[in-house]
């Protein structure tokens, strides 16, 4: 079933590195961890998809599924938390 050889795996590694870098840049630039996490997970997802194209072993399939599920979970959790925080009135000293 392997059709593309090890190339996508290498590219996936590269994209994972880019993801960490972009997440760090986003965190430093905006100081909003939720946004930086979103950026990181977006790019990690791209890496996972590339890895899935490389060689679908059961381990890589499980890893990709875990990343996707985790991404959904964290995203939903952050949105719910954001809504709750948005309903709270701003602090008095601002």
């Amino acid at each position: 079933m392997t059709s593309l050889g090890p190339l996508p795996g290498t590219l996936a590694l590269l994209v994972s590195g880019l993801a960490l870098l972009a997440g760090a840049v986003a965190l430093v630039a905006t100081r909003r961890p939720a946004l930086a996490l979103g950026v990181l997970l977006d790019l990690l997802l791209a890496a996972g998809l590339l890895r899935l194209a490389a060689e679908p072993t059961w381990t890589s399939i499980a890893t990709a599924a875990a990343v996707v599920a985790l991404r959904r979970l964290i995203g939903a959790g952050l949105r719910a938390g954001g809504r709750v925080l948005a309903d709270v009135p701003p602090p008095a000293h601002r």
Binding site: L4, P8, L11, V15, L18, A19, A22, D42, L43, A46, A47, L49, L50, A53
Partner: peptide
Amino acid sequence: AAVILVGAVWA
């Protein structure tokens, strides 16, 4: 794979 890679690098 090329589309995903280009998208990731561009992003």
